[in-house]
Design a protein around this nucleic acid. Structure first.
Lengths: 150, 150
DNA sequence: AAAAAAATATGATTTAAATCATATTCAGGA
DNA sequence: TCCTGAATATGATTTAAATCATATTTTTTT
């Protein structure tokens, strides 16, 4: 059985998360990685991921230096960022908070018909995205309990 | 706090669910409702919802007759359809089953780094969408425990 | 300094979802 | 049987996300 594909995350956010995890595993201040060497292994168009990475740099989620010998990398501070922080940077906060039926006034006291189906699960997931850091996910890959693809 | 806005459902699916719930509450074989009288209260463009309703008719999820005195309505059989059935008709099945990071080979034995964050919640939600019928949700509105907007 | 190599900024193009428009078909009433 | 009012089928247009292209800036090396 597959993971659930939630458009909850845009393609851009997914790309960004993959790129950051890649950097977490393969870069350091002493060992920067160029866009082209990120784009290929995570299987994302180079010009596209470049744009996303630039946005993450602006927001201090990842680090970079330009010029020759330049590239992207993560500091140990960067590693402490939550997955949520990446998503908010790319998709914006609004995208994550609204009603399943897009009803303006849906809330606990006046739930839409689908509210109960989703509310608990939603909170579980949002909390995880907020709490899990890049470092956490990186460790889970290093320990062999989760996997990144070719 | 708001419901979670899951793009898990496309706008089209949301529109369709709203329309079907509207029909469940306001139509019967003896009391058909025309598109224009559905479009306005649920706040969806008429030509757009018309197209969606036509797809639902083709799939026997809702009922209709054309010509004067015609319109859309639900039979008691229609009421037993699951919410999932609507979603599958509009968005297709594939959209609901794939990895959060869009990784081809993500599964329980080889989970992606976000798998654990999502897997349980995903199953909970999918099961609910499969089990909840139109009738169930309609009853929850009638009983006053959930609400539909103006 | 000058040149080269990298990120950065900006904007153009493509693609898919959402929206709009219209001609056709079918049911009911005169 | 003909007219009217509705759904139906089909396709055009718009919009936003995804993708591509290129000129500019910054850093390192020579």
């Amino acid at each position: 059985m597959n993971c659930l594909y939630w458009k909850m995350l845009s393609k851009s956010s997914k790309y960004a998360i993959k790129a950051v995890l890649f950097l977490a595993l393969h870069s350091s201040k002493e060992n920067k990685v160029m866009v082209k060497d990120i784009a290929e292994p995570i299987n994302v168009p180079q010009a596209y991921i470049a744009k996303l990475l630039q946005a993450l740099v602006r927001d201090n989620i990842i680090s970079s230096v330009r010029g020759s010998k330049g590239g992207f990398y993560l500091t140990s501070e960067n590693l402490e960022n939550s997955i949520m922080r990446i998503v908010k940077n790319i998709d914006g906060e609004d995208k994550l908070t609204a009603c399943m039926l897009s009803m303006e006034k849906c809330h606990e006291e006046r739930p839409c018909p689908l509210h109960d189906i989703l509310s608990a699960s939603r909170n579980t997931i949002l909390t995880s995205l907020k709490n899990k850091t890049i470092r956490d996910l990186t460790l889970s890959v290093k320990s062999g309990s989760t996997f990144l693809p070719l």
